[in-house]
Nucleic acid binder design. Sequence first.
DNA 1: ATGATTTAGTTAGCATAGCTAACTATATTC
DNA 2: GAATATAGTTAGCTATGCTAACTAAATCAT
Lengths: 150, 150
Amino acid sequence: MTVVKPKSEGHSELLETADRLHSAAIHLLRRLRVGDRESGIGPAQLSALSVLVFGGPRSLGELADAEQVRPPTMSRIVSGLERAGLVKREATEDGRRVRLRATPKGTKILWEGRKRRVESLANALGLLGETDRGRLAELAELLREIVRKI
Amino acid sequence: MTVVKPKSEGHSELLETADRLHSAAIHLLRRLRVGDRESGIGPAQLSALSVLVFGGPRSLGELADAEQVRPPTMSRIVSGLERAGLVKREATEDGRRVRLRATPKGTKILWEGRKRRVESLANALGLLGETDRGRLAELAELLREIVRKI
DNA sequence: ATGATTTAGTTAGCATAGCTAACTATATTC
DNA sequence: GAATATAGTTAGCTATGCTAACTAAATCAT
């Protein structure tokens, strides 16, 4: 893993870091999905719901943008959330737009689900030393910035 | 973001870090999926193939374990890879087991796909300062350890 | 040695989640 | 007022996750 080709050393290292992040992200989500399933709500729904809960009501298009999916995909995700009574579609001044709002039930469910979801991760984090934990908090922040830049 | 409830300060911080990692992982993969699609091979297939290419041949059950999915799921993922000529099912001494092996084509495709996939991520990483980049490489390693612990 | 059990993998059937293309309805513009 | 643009939805495809039920092979126990 520390073997790096001599030529264009920095680039190679960058690719390796990128690849490792990618791999870690895939496996991280697979592990956490187990807990997600207990809530009876899919990962895409959970993620979309969290935007509405923490970020407030918005239109379907805005939510699709925030979640990096196409409108038809978000339309169906929202349908699922609505069917479960976690989100409501409200009419707006502009008759084309809908305003999506998390219901009290949705907000409650999200908080519970989120807690359970990150619990195992938080536990794993708790196994780390104080130093590593601090570094990891930095990573999370850094990662968020990076994702915005991609 | 630095607002932490006084009670059980460390735990709350941990949850927040966990949540941020989770969110970042979701969005990271969504962004990278765009590039993935160009290869005509799904993310699960790509990930499974990479285990075979970098980790060598193994049984379906082992691959399912490595990828944190159930055997039927992996069976279908492998079927897709086989259909595309990227992986071969080989018979073993134990007639129940199959040995999965990446074909030369699979290996080639993976290297190309992997390169393209992490390219955008590596570019985003390149926008960071030298300090952040170093930190991130370190922390990617940390993340890998954590995922193993969950 | 043969019958029962365990193990590995597949098949069938269901749900979620991603996409594009095509449609509807409402706003905006000319 | 007609043409165009915009927001969402519907329809239909693929990929990926699952559990349940099946087949085939190996192992175990009598």
